[in-house]
């Protein structure tokens, strides 16, 4: 069953020229799609537009998301509405929130989603248990929880923290924006294995990536190669290897 249908999507930075110039893409439940592309191809823009970043505006097209038996157009929803409907973006550059502990942040977000979905919130004790279980996925120790959100975190810690949030919020559609960039070998393995464990037959993931480093651990069902705001090629996981071997210039050739 389909979970996401992007149809003719054009988008730009507010008042700028179009960066996305007609994207079509469909994702089924249980699938992992990789979106690859050189710098400036628009792949991060795609992730941000899907999540509702206020710097971007959609000029044409639709982003249909299947939720509770109906199709919603994400472009008409506020960022938090998309989140509570099950869309999650792991940020390329996670943002610092001074003065707020990671635990408090996680619990606030989790309970906001519970409220929006009309399910009971968790109290502090129940929530700690949930976190303790999810932390194991990405080998984070408990001291993370008392630290201020992303403040003085190393690059690897920030990325792991994104995956922890994903594990806790349990999205139906996860957008991972260059989650593999800036990671050393060990962190890459931990993050990639964590992501892999979060895959279920009911959810779907869009991995936005420049390299195929992460794809050594996670085998995507579908690979898209993006350049100049368009999807130039779509194929199976072998496409990623081909890009790795032959470079992005190859993709542009007719």
């Amino acid at each position: 069953m389909s979970i996401l249908k992007i149809e003719g999507l054009c988008a730009r930075v507010v008042d700028g020229p179009d960066i996305l110039k007609g994207i079509d893409l469909a994702v089924e439940e249980g699938q992992i799609h990789a979106v690859m592309g050189p710098n400036g191809s628009g792949k991060s823009t795609l992730a941000r537009v899907l999540a509702g970043h206020p710097d971007y505006e959609v000029t044409r097209g639709k982003v249909l998301y299947h939720h509770d038996g109906e199709w919603l157009d994400l472009t008409e929803m506020e960022p938090h509405e998309r989140a509570t409907a099950g869309v999650f973006m792991a940020f390329q550059y996670p943002v610092e929130i001074p003065g707020v502990s990671n635990l408090h942040f996680l619990q606030t977000a989790f309970n906001a989603q519970c409220r929006a979905q009309g399910i009971p919130e968790l109290d502090a004790f129940e929530f700690r248990e949930l976190v303790a279980e999810k932390q194991k996925l990405i080998e984070m120790d408990a001291s993370y929880l008392d630290r201020e959100v992303n403040l003085d975190f190393s690059g690897g810690e920030k990325k792991r923290n994104e995956i922890l949030q994903m594990a806790i919020l349990n999205p139906r559609l996860a957008l991972l924006d260059e989650t593999d960039s800036g990671l050393d070998v060990d962190s890459l393995r931990i993050v990639a294995e964590g992501v892999q464990k979060l895959q279920t037959p009911r959810n779907a993931m869009l991995l936005i990536t420049h390299y195929q480093r992460m794809l050594r651990y996670i085998t995507p069902d579908v690979v898209h190669v993006l350049a100049d705001g368009r999807i130039l090629r779509t194929g199976d996981h072998t496409l990623a290897e081909e890009v790795e071997n032959r470079g992005y210039e190859w993709v542009r050739q007719p």
Partner: peptide, 26 residues
């Protein structure tokens, strides 16, 4: 910052909830 607001909103907090969390942290 808009980035802070967006980050929190993308986790499910509405604008008021996001500002209130940021202010309480402050």
């Amino acid at each position: 910052s808009d980035d802070q607001l967006f980050y929190l909103q993308s986790r499910g907090l509405d604008a008021e909830g996001a500002v209130s969390l940021l202010v309480n942290g402050f």
